[in-house]
Nucleic acid binder design. Structure first.
Length: 678
DNA sequence: GCTGTCAAAGTTTTT
DNA sequence: CTTTGACAGC
């Protein structure tokens, strides 16, 4: 905007506005940038990194930028590399919190009685551990316990503290399980997702030497999506920056949508009290959306109590009215949206990639996919079941994990029983008993156990031939490339035949294709980045999607959950299933209380989700809700979401759009012009 | 005791 | 559609 007026204008992009520029240049102390949706927050972070590197001569390896998702980290890295030379950026850390935690744990493993080749348990693994400890199949109970443990960990509370503050019998049970859960993970030489942040945060807090050492490594810290940090992450930020407090955090309290994962909005407010000299900068100019969209967004979010007052505005014109449509059911909704996208692409001379369909829950994508396939509309799906959650992928990863860490009992169990090789429930039972009696891992116990310990010769043979195979592969792992090792693994386990023997041809082919894709990916990772088997196994735990170099079809309609859509933008957005019960989503009903009392905090979070959805739209927004929807196994009558009314729409008078009523004559004119342009 | 076959049921959001 | 649960042969 006014690059000419400042001394550093030349190398700083001239398209920064006054506030953005202020945020980039401010280095004297802690800085909080409140960045509304579409206000250019990523631009601020990337420009600031470039500024630190080029103008302030910060060494790249002393700058750390943290994000929540791998995608955000990758994008940020790309954008920084577009601003500075590869040489200047060498050693720069741009990673997720979890990836930094992993790096920390590897370096400081000795402080945790952890081998450097520890395993990382994902949510599924950890649930299995809890299931084992609880000895129940009651899924609701298992999830409740897992959730409780996770929240405690994220709040930096240990098992004893958790037990002390447990409110009800369920929490007391969870707290006692927590203790055994910890012991079990330690025996497996494993950590879970939460530990990746909690353990570093705890050590940094309690160990002066370690904290000093890391503070010397981090001269400047930047955090993206700060509103989604939890207690552990905040503690980590505090420890890493220390009294020098050289950091910039960027966030938006209106887009906090991860409370269920332990994120606490209070971290934003706390910053102002913990750092009295905090520089606060608000970015309110939106560069993404037309005014009709912003008006709807502002109206909805006005129903939340907010920490910092903020009102988005833009110069992108009035825009067309937001359309709200009632549908008879979700199939008709899908059908209608498919047709509309088709028609609009033609009318607007747009491309497929200009359209996105956003929804609250993954299952909603199913019908949409079906319809789009029928209509021959190309689409890509984001969110949803991750590649690394597929059974065949977990199978192979179990082998890899076991090769990396022979203490990893869950990996042993999965590998030993897949493909079927005569090792079953009873064998594992006996082995488990023997192993715990002798304090051995299942793998080690396989070599020590005999027929005297309650195993038939046949069981013993099956077990030992597996153990010996893994031992042999483990030996080769040290001298051979990951690619060769994987080939041998697949050959010796006859994994491909196993797929074709147990599944129909089509399914087997699909799975084998996935396995080969995984192997190619692993081989590439080990080749390019020189990762060892251990590092590969650990790395995979933190990755949900296969990072493909290029999408096979870049021009496609985007299907995404609201959570996964954060940070993205599309010219034309369809927000579907905007009904009471879905958005806002009704949680599981409490078994005790008959009357459903709403948790206002949860409604507020759902409202932020709605806000995130609305603000993805650049030019047009279409909201739909269904009068009936199949839930569980019954057709349920649905009410339109309260958020629709909050936007200013009366669903009984769909033609009447109050948002338009408030348009000034000039805005109306601009809107008409916009319409004509298309 | 292991394994495969059949039936049923199930899903909020993610590192 | 795909993953989990119970039962009957091998």
């Amino acid at each position: 905007m006014n690059a000419e007026n400042t001394g550093v204008g030349h190398s700083l992009a001239s398209d920064l506005n006054v506030r953005q520029r202020e945020a980039v240049l401010y280095l004297d102390g802690p800085c909080l940038v409140l960045a509304g949706a579409g206000s250019g927050k990523t631009r601020v972070i990337t420009q600031k990194i470039a500024y630190l590197l080029r103008e302030c001569a910060f060494p790249a390896n002393r700058i750390v930028a943290l994000t929540f998702t791998n995608k955000a980290a990758r994008e940020m890295r790309e954008r920084v590399l577009a601003l500075v030379s590869g040489k200047q950026a060498k050693g720069l850390t741009i990673s997720t919190f979890h990836a930094l935690g992993l790096r920390f744990l590897r370096q400081e493993a000795a402080h945790f009685e952890l081998k450097p080749d520890f395993s990382i348990m994902d949510a599924t693994d950890s649930l299995a551990v809890i299931q084992e400890l609880l000895a129940t199949t009651d899924k609701a109970r298992l999830r409740a316990v897992q959730q409780a443990i996770s929240l405690w960990k994220n709040a930096l509370l240990g098992p004893d503290q958790a037990a002390a503050q447990a409110q009800n019998p369920l929490e007391q049970e969870a707290a006692s399980i927590y203790k055994y859960y910890e012991a079990t993970l330690k025996a497996y030489q494993a950590v879970d997702f939460d530990d990746l942040i909690r353990l570093p945060a705890r050590l940094l807090k309690n160990n002066d030497e370690v904290r000093q050492r890391w503070q010397n490594q981090v001269h400047y810290l930047l955090v993206d999506e700060y509103q989604d940090t939890n207690e552990c992450q905040y503690s980590m930020v505090r420890s890493l920056t220390g009294s020098k407090s050289r950091f910039t955090v960027v966030g938006d309290d209106d887009q906090a949508i991860y409370a269920w994962r332990g994120a606490t909005l209070e971290n934003l407010g706390r910053l102002t009290t913990d750092y009295p000299h905090l520089k606060l900068i608000k970015l309110e100019q939106n560069y993404r959306s037309v005014q009709s969209v912003l008006r709807a967004a502002n109206r909805v979010i006005a129903n939340n109590t907010s920490l910092f007052e903020k009102e988005l505005w833009s110069e992108l014109g009035a825009g067309e009215s937001i359309r709200v449509t009632a549908m008879d059911n979700h199939e008709i909704e899908a059908e209608s949206i498919g047709r509309r996208i088709s028609a609009e692409r033609f009318e607007r001379r747009a491309e497929w990639r200009d359209f996105a369909v956003l929804y609250r829950s993954n299952q909603q994508a199913r019908v949409i996919e079906q319809v789009l396939r029928n209509l021959r509309i190309p689409y890509t799906l984001s969110g949803g079941q991750s590649f690394f959650d597929k059974a065949e992928i977990r199978d192979i990863m179990a082998y890899l994990r076991l090769l990396a860490n022979s203490d990893d009992d869950p990996a042993f169990i999965r590998a030993a029983t897949t493909p079927r090789r005569g090792v079953g429930q009873a064998t594992l039972q006996a082995l488990g008993t023997y192993a715990s009696a002798h304090s051995l891992s299942l793998f080690a116990a396989s070599f020590a156990i005999t027929t005297d310990d309650g195993l038939a010769q046949r069981q013993l043979d099956a077990l030992q031939s597996f153990a010996r195979l893994m031992q042999e592969l483990g030996r080769r792992a040290k001298e051979e490339s990951a690619a060769d090792l994987l080939d041998q693994l697949l050959a010796h386990t006859r994994y491909e035949s196993y797929l074709y023997d147990t599944l129909d041809n089509r399914a087997a082919q699909a799975r084998w294709q996935n396995v080969r894709e995984l192997c190619a990916w692993l081989a590439r990772k080990s080749g390019e980045d020189g990762l060892s088997i251990t590092e590969l196994a650990q790395h995979v735990a933190l990755v949900t999607m296969l990072e493909r170099n290029d999408e096979e079809n870049p021009d496609a309609v985007k299907l995404s959950t609201l959570h996964a859509a954060k940070g993205l933008e599309f010219p034309h957005v369809f927000l579907i299933g905007v009904e009471e019960g879905l958005l806002p989503h009704k949680g599981r009903e409490e078994p005790g209380s008959t009357e459903v009392k709403e948790d206002p905090a949860r409604i507020q979070e759902e409202r932020r989700l709605m806000y995130v959805g609305i603000t993805r739209a650049q030019r047009s927004l279409h909201i739909s809700w269904c009068k009936r929807r199949r839930r569980a196994r019954q057709d349920v009558i649905c009410e339109p979401s309260r958020f629709i009314a909050e936007m200013g729409f009366d669903v009984k008078k769909p033609r009447d759009n109050p948002a338009d009523e408030h348009l000034s004559p000039s805005e109306r004119l601009a809107m008409l012009k916009d319409l004509l342009k298309q």
